[in-house]
Nucleic acid binder design. Structure first.
Length: 445
RNA sequence: CGGGGCGUGGCGCAGUCUGGUAGCGCACCUGUUUUGGGUACAGGGGGUCGUAGGUUCGAAUCCUGCCGCCCCGACCA
């Protein structure tokens, strides 16, 4: 992509409303524009990151055996009356009427609708287990939206629902989701710690929240510092293996890690003092097992082997995809701007032409751009006629993890400069080597 | 919803107290210059001062209503 052809409205000055780093940087780097309180437009660069996260979530869900689908944002109130949540959900649910005066709502979550789909089409235990999910816009009419995309009213969320014959199977689904979520966050370059949580209005018995540690997080968390040393890494996972999923859950949840909702000071004090941590975190996902809470009142049953109807055991699972961008930036930025992890960066590498208009550097940049594209890498070539400092500042702000600097001096020696955004370290390499290096870096992901 | 604050070109702000021709910086456009960490000079375009009403010879400025946005608290992916 040529910078001159892109739509990237970067701001030198920070809009007054932005209080936290991720919000400021998202506005300054031209990722989003506020439309009204808690509602944002996603500009091309922000949309690109959002799509990357969405793709990673899809990829990991499909890997875990879950089926993608899409449900509408507007739903009939009738289903919600059936489950009893039309009245329970309260002011947070945005309600409206169509021209016939029928009550509609903008979906804050989709347990009712998915259960309705399930009961209409599934009647035998042989069709279980089944896990369906979608990534779709949600609306929750927050009392006070804030922190930009981190607590918007409209947000992009992956929500999944499992249907199982027995509690045991449903708990395996729970474990499977925990594992797949861990993988998902790790691929994004984020550490999200599963913590025992409170179930809130979704209801249910078992629930874990995934929290990214950040000073600006809204949740108070307490944990054993040793939990931050556990990673999934490259291990081979068989999602049908109940024992393996269970073992991973136990591995990740054995140590103390809780939000303030479920915090137990006595257990916390039992941790060696030097490992006790009280901090703040951003909630980026949550998984629930809630048994027959919806299937029972809504009549979502299957015939068991004995021919008798059984209410299915369910759980639901969410990842706040749009919020993740905020969490990613909170965890990855410095005073100059964003530093995208390689797994989610909108472009793999930026190219800075130090002397735009100079035939030799222009040619070298264009050749590099083609070579990188042919290698399957996405480039953002800053071809503006700007001073180098301005180009570097823009690259730093938008946070591409790698930058190639092309100038007449280097070209005399046959090299260009490859710079890491994270470390600031540079290396002089031939254009061929640069392409190779970047290929190696991104191949691993 | 309670408490606090703000609304003046795309962004950041001054001007409001004490009414008298709407300003500054950035961004944008034109030209020249320049390009190794936010370049210099010159010229230029763009504003119903959130909105409605009131007071006044005259309102960004004073008064009233409404709308929007932000911050602190109770709720949430």
């Amino acid at each position: 992509m040529r910078f001159s052809r892109y739509f990237l409205p970067v701001l030198k000055e920070t809009p007054a409303e932005a209080q936290i780093a991720s919000h400021r940087l998202m506005l300054r780097a031209g990722l989003i524009k506020q439309s009204s309180a808690g509602i944002y437009s996603w500009l091309p660069l922000g949309f690109k990151v959002l799509r990357k996260l969405e793709n990673i979530v899809h990829d990991e869900q499909i890997r875990a055996g879950h089926l993608p689908m899409l449900m509408p944002t507007l739903q009939s109130a009738d289903l919600w009356r059936e489950s009893g949540r039309y009245d329970d959900y309260g002011e947070e649910m945005l309600r409206m009427q169509d021209r016939h005066g029928r009550d509609l709502l903008f979906t804050p979550t989709a347990e009712e609708l998915i259960t309705d789909i399930f009961r209409a089409h599934v009647s035998s235990y042989r069709d279980l287990p089944l896990t369906l999910y979608q990534i779709q816009w949600k609306f929750r009419d927050e009392i006070r939206p804030r922190f930009g995309i981190m607590r918007g009213r409209e947000f992009f969320m992956k929500d999944g629902y499992n249907f199982d014959l027995t509690k045991e199977d449903a708990l395996h689904a729970y474990n499977r989701h925990l594992v797949s979520y861990l993988r998902t966050y790790e691929r994004m370059g984020l550490q999200a710690i599963p913590m025992r949580a409170d179930s809130g209005p979704i209801g249910g018995d078992d629930t874990h929240e995934f929290l990214v540690l950040a000073e600006t997080g809204e949740s108070e968390v307490f944990y054993d510092s040793a939990v931050t040393d556990i990673t999934l890494g490259m291990r081979d996972i068989d999602y049908t293996d109940k024992a393996q999923c269970q073992a991973i859950l136990e591995e990740f949840t054995a140590l103390y890690a809780r939000t303030d909702e479920t915090h137990d000071p006595a257990l916390f004090d039992a941790i060696p003092t030097e490992r006790q941590r009280a901090a703040r975190g951003i909630e980026v996902g949550q998984i629930f097992y809630f048994g027959t809470k919806y299937s029972h009142p809504m009549g979502a049953t299957v015939q068991g082997p004995d021919g008798k109807p059984v209410a299915v055991h369910m759980g639901s699972h969410g990842i706040g995809v749009s919020r993740l961008i905020g969490a990613l930036i909170e965890a990855n930025h410095d005073e100059n701007g964003i530093i995208w992890p390689e797994g989610v960066t909108p472009f793999h590498v930026g190219i800075v032409n130090l002397k735009q208009g100079d035939a030799a550097t222009d040619t070298a940049c264009e050749a590099l751009e083609r070579a990188l594209q042919n290698a399957g890498l996405e480039t953002l070539y800053d071809d503006r006629e700007e001073r180098a400092g301005a180009k570097f500042a823009t690259m730093d702000l938008i946070g591409l993890p790698w930058r190639i600097t092309v100038g007449p001096r280097g070209l005399k020696g046959g090299v260009v400069e490859l710079t890491s955004r994270r470390t600031g370290e540079s290396e002089d390499l031939t254009p061929e080597r640069v392409v190779q290096r970047l290929q190696e870096i991104y191949l691993k992901l």
